[in-house]
Amino acid sequence: MSAPLIALEGVEAGYGPAQVLFGVSFAVNAGEVVTLMGRNGMGKSTTLRTLFGLLPARAGRILINGADLTGAPPHRIASAGLGYVPEGRQIFPRLTVEENLVATASPGRGHGWTLARVYALFPRLEERRRNMGPELSGGEQQMLAIGRALMTNPDLLVLDEATEGLAPVIRADIWTALAALRAEGLAILVVDKNLEALLRLADRHVVMEAGRVTWTGSTAEVQADPSLITRYLEV
């Protein structure tokens, strides 16, 4: 068996004096869709930031394809095959849609993403290809952030609250796109609030509570035990 795509082993991290993550461990294998669930403020975004080297890991290890990249700069972690769709989207406001997609693209590797394929996945982006980032709706910005991450040709797509604050129709478009990516064999690590959509999309789930992983299991296990949801997820 080959090494998982990513593995966090006992990762601790925080902001200044405040420790937020306490020994977080989980892994994502090739082609797998895994969710990171938990109530607000439990440390999901912090886990992703630490994974990408945007926040230093104070303890533990971060392995990518078996290689120890703990403490590596973000660009090395990302170019090891991780595509980041950050919370709040954060597209490049002074670039056009097409420039946003091309600027950080690394063509000719991984799943072979091109402009044409991103436009086929999100036709709205092609219509707006010459528009500047801030002229887009929230949903279009989100599609752009996903397209931009795909253009880095990652082995694992990482999404933080990708449907947050979007109209239901646009959300549905995004879930459809993620299902299509999954069908192509792309591994996905996703943070979101929409449980039904997550259960439809994902193979496995990692639940966080106050900076710790408190439960992991398959979609079937979640569906078999509804009390899990009230215990870990409902406010």
């Binding site: 990408f52 945007l54 700069p73 973000p74 660009h75 990302a78 170019s79 595509g83 980041y84 950050p86 954060q90 490049f92 406001p93 002074r94 670039l95 600027a103 950080t104 690394s106 931009r148 991450a149 880095t152």
Partner: peptide, 12 residues
Amino acid sequence: DNETRVRALGLA
């Protein structure tokens, strides 16, 4: 526009 974002997308 956003240096950190460029780095998190894989470019130094």
